[in-house]
Design a protein around this nucleic acid. Structure first.
Length: 867
RNA sequence: GGGCGUAUAGCUCAGUUGGUUAGAGCGUUACAUUGACAUUGUAAAGGUCCGUGGUUCGAGUCCACGUACGCCCACCA
């Protein structure tokens, strides 16, 4: 039955329909998969922000995870890819705040907590579907029936339970600490969410009693009554720790105390500094060490407090200038360095300049011994599971980075002063405190106004999505998950936190393998950004080139941990390939007598058959092994190479000459569609439909090797290729049209002794030339048989020149091969090599020697026949 | 300041515990081509594998130092 198949593949026409078919089949849900499936394979999708739009970073994550999960599904696993969205507390809240300001000129305080949160929820509900539909555009085969949102009731329950358990185990405590305070968003910001801007600003030197101190922040100096120096600093040996000095300062005479502490850098400035413990983390630590007073200078609104007297109520930037002026008048300014550059911390989620402040916050203690870890701490346990190999991080070098980070990890501040998010499950009534998710009985209980750091709930994501703390069947089946695939930029934010939470709460790792993909950059390797105008929108490329081409361009040429460059030209290139695959299929389907499924590998009848089937088997094995090892790019390249350079360029061409290849062509096509499916699900599924089966490709079993790899066929076919290409070149140089008959002769000699036949072709070419050059017109005396008769038709006199070129090429080749043979022979006589090199390498070299001696012999024969 | 990387063709990058005579895609050039392919084919040109030493029978691969670039972390007031 001949089918009418369009000449070009049009992704835009078919992709949405195919996705719908997949979704309706129910096979995204592992419970519906056919057959008996005992092994589970699960991936939890890193949840995109609910209010976001799909960007290229999501696209790469979806492409990789979909590939892996489709592979697992085809290999007969109970494959679950659990999708979700994240509430992204700070980002979402500030987005809604700015909308409110723009549209209604209101702040969140005008609405109040309850109303404002309703607005946020409405906004989230409306934009959540957008990203969900965009995820589908990529072809993501995730189980939407298990989709979770980080603020879902059951997920929140897990969050409260985790908090409670950790509190009861003394792993969560409340304390005063320096936090990064964002006066603009009125919230604390975690260390990981800080960004630094290089700034050039004046650096002032002031006279502070007998000392000269330097600062870039004069406005914090009101309360400075401790002067600190290094205990080993010989310049200040005359001053003793604890010594008190009377001195003139901004607002009159004060008493300063000398503190000796090793935190001071003797090389920096004058080696003396005053400290402001309330607004500087280093100073805070010094103050803690020596039990010094801490005074707040700057309010949470970023304005100076009454301690600043006449400057009270002014912003730090206004006050800075005035204070310097006042000190100048008092003659206390010794010099000003206008060329001082330092870094200013800002909130990466907003724009506020960070002001360190002391606040009462909730913390997770990473250094408290945990009973169930036999006294190990959360930090130590998290290090251990990776060191022991319970978790593998790809690429390996990130394990080092992970260790380094954990070894230096400090307590984790988990409270945030924003409204949107998981509210801290703690209730207060006068001096009573109740920890737990439910409002305690009785009147007058107030819940803590703060919310939890997003990463606290994200840390539970692999199991809160599976029903924990309930002991669900899903949790039992799918946890620990098999793969966590995410960008290397959030290894600390998220990956480490998941390991901490899961090892503690479940006493199990959250995942067995971590695959960290790189950043997607533009073709010059620059970061993509809207302002540069160099970003590629995956939704655009899907529209113009198709989801399959978009996926390929993200999958091939990308290795874990390394950034990859992306350009529209690259996507266009893969669109060409997808179209090539389409046309190969089109040709096969239109030219076979009967389209049908061929499950068993047909018997090879000719050299070309044996060769292509061997190549296919090699490909199947390489693809399977490498996907299992997450060498995803390599597999794409190999299958690509097979499809284009082996199947299309050679085997399909040969099939035009040799007949009776329907079964093999169909078998190869089917196998290839399966191999491609995890990479390019849409086009393969579309072609599969035309094979006359009602079953979906997505649940077909992954191909297995059938039959043996015929090494001899591979070697012989390589010679055939050389011969054909050589003859074509000769003809091309002599401007003679290609000869299909000649190709046919070489590809399918009538006799079995293939190589000899080829030699005969060569020798026939040479002989004919000689004869023609002789211009005698004499008939060849020896029987050149059919070969000569055929070649005669095409071979020109001028071909003699090309024979000379061929001889030159072969001679050159002979020299090179001979050199190599000598090299190998010498090596095999080298005692040290024989003693020291591993046995398999020695054997390998012996085999190579024989092979190359053989090859040299053949080249010599060819040469002889030409001369 | 501490840590982790990268340097291979004009461009983007592979190169698997050291073992052929270093590869691919794109681009360039030549030739062929209207075909299953307006998205095709065959080939060619193009390399000091950043530099200098070292280990080894053998180094793009391992080591040391240097140079250039990138990223992450950090308490220099």
């Amino acid at each position: 039955m001949k089918q009418d198949i369009p000449k070009a593949y049009e992704p835009g026409v078919v992709e949405d329909d195919i996705y719908q078919t997949w979704e309706q089949s129910g096979f995204f849900n592992p419970d519906n998969l056919p057959g008996k499936r005992t092994d589970a394979f699960s991936i939890t999708m890193p949840p995109p922000n609910a209010t976001g739009v799909l960007h290229i970073g999501h696209a790469v994550m979806l492409a990789i995870q979909d590939l892996v999960i489709r592979f697992a599904r085809m290999r007969g696993k109970k494959a679950l890819w659990l999708p979700g969205t994240d509430h992204a507390a700070i980002a979402t809240q500030s987005k809604v705040e700015s909308l409110l300001k723009e549209q209604e000129h209101k702040t969140k305080h005008d609405l109040g907590r309850e109303q404002f949160l309703q607005r946020v929820e409405a906004y989230v509900a409306q934009s959540r579907n957008t990203i969900k539909n965009q995820v589908k555009k990529m072809g993501s085969s995730c189980d939407w029936s298990r989709e979770r949102f980080t603020l879902d009731a059951d997920v929140s329950l897990a969050v409260n339970e985790a908090f409670k358990q950790m509190y009861e185990d003394d792993l969560i405590y409340r304390g005063h600490r320096i936090v990064n305070w964002d006066p603009q968003l009125q919230t604390t910001v975690s260390d990981d969410e800080l960004e630094y801007l290089d700034q050039r600003s004046p650096f002032y030197y002031f006279q502070y009693g007998p000392f000269e101190i330097g600062t870039a922040r004069p406005e914090t100096k009101f309360g400075d009554k401790y002067v600190v120096m290094h205990p080993d600093d010989t310049r200040y040996q005359g001053y003793a720790h604890g010594q008190q000095l009377e001195l003139e300062w901004i607002n009159g005479t004060i008493t300063a105390t000398v503190i000796k502490d090793k935190a001071v850098d003797m090389e920096f400035g004058t080696g003396v500094m005053t400290i402001t413990p309330w607004h500087d983390a280093t100073d805070f630590e010094i103050a803690e060490r020596h039990h010094l007073d801490k005074e707040q200078i700057i309010g949470f609104d970023g304005k100076l407090l009454p301690i600043a007297r006449e400057f009270a109520g002014e912003s730090i930037f206004e006050a800075r200038v005035k204070i310097v002026e006042k000190l100048k008048q008092k003659g206390l300014v010794t010099r000003i360095d206008n060329d001082y550059s330092h870094r200013v911390a800002i909130n990466s989620r907003g724009e506020g300049v960070i002001e360190p402040q002391i606040k009462e916050q909730w913390f997770v203690s990473v250094n408290t011994p945990v009973k169930k870890f036999g006294g190990k701490t959360l930090r130590e346990r998290s290090l251990e599971v990776v060191k022991q190999g319970d978790i593998t991080i790809l690429p390996g070098r990130f394990e080092k980075i992970y260790f380094h980070w954990l070894e230096n990890l400090r307590d984790w501040c988990i409270s945030r002063q924003i409204w949107y998010g998981h509210r801290i499950p703690v209730y207060y009534r006068e001096k009573q405190m109740h920890v737990g998710g439910e409002l305690p009985k009785g009147d007058g209980w107030e819940q803590d106004p703060d919310t939890l750091d997003t990463w606290f709930s994200s840390g539970l994501w692999t199991f809160s999505t599976l029903g924990w703390p309930q002991k669900t069947q899903d949790l039992k089946t799918f946890h620990p998950t098999n793969l966590m695939e995410t960008g290397y930029d959030i290894i600390f934010f998220w990956v480490a936190r998941m390991i901490i939470m899961s090892t503690y709460l479940l006493e199990a790792v959250p995942f067995k393998t971590v695959y960290l993909h790189g950043l997607v950059r533009d073709e010059q390797g620059k970061k993509m950004s809207k302002s540069l105008g160099n970003s590629i929108d995956p939704l655009d490329t899907i529209k113009s080139y198709g989801a399959d081409a978009t996926r390929l361009s993200l999958l091939i040429g990308s290795t874990p941990g390394n950034d990859m460059n992306m350009s529209e030209a690259k996507v266009a290139g893969y669109r060409n390939f997808v179209n090539k695959l389409w046309n190969i299929s089109r040709y096969i389907l239109m030219n076979v007598a009967e389209v049908k499924l061929v499950e068993k590998q047909p018997k090879p009848k000719t050299l070309a058959d044996a060769w292509i089937l061997s190549e296919l088997n090699i490909l199947i094995e390489a693809a399977t092994n490498n996907i299992e090892k997450y060498n995803l790019s390599v597999v794409g390249e190999k299958v690509y190479e097979f499809t284009w350079n082996k199947l299309a360029d050679w085997y399909v061409e040969i099939a035009k000459i040799e007949k009776d290849k329907d079964a093999i062509l169909l078998y190869i096509l089917q196998t290839l569609l399966k191999l491609w499916h995890p990479y390019t699900p849409f086009v393969t599924e579309e072609i599969w439909k035309k094979l006359g089966t009602a079953e979906l490709l997505m649940i077909q079993p992954w191909p297995e090797i059938q039959g043996k790899v015929d090494v001899k066929a591979q070697r012989d076919f390589a010679l055939v290729q050389d011969l054909i290409v050589g003859v074509r070149n000769i003809r091309a140089q002599a401007k003679i049209p290609p000869a299909q008959k000649l190709d046919a002769l070489v590809i399918a000699p009538k006799k079995a002794k293939l190589i000899e036949e080829q030699a005969a072709v060569i020798s026939a070419l040479a002989r004919l030339n000689q004869l023609k050059v002789a211009a005698s017109g004499a008939k060849p005396k020896e029987s050149l048989s059919v070969i000569a008769a055929e070649t005669q038709l095409y071979l020109p006199v001028s071909g003699m020149m090309d024979i000379a070129a061929e001889v030159a090429r072969l001679e050159k080749e002979a020299v090179r091969v001979e050199q190599f043979v000598q090299h190998l022979a010498a090596k095999l006589e080298n005692q040290r090599f024989l003693e020291r090199a591993p046995k398999d390498i020695v054997d390998n070299e012996k085999v190579k020697l024989i092979e190359h001696q053989d090859l040299l012999e053949k080249i010599k024969q060819q040469l002889a026949s030409l001369q």
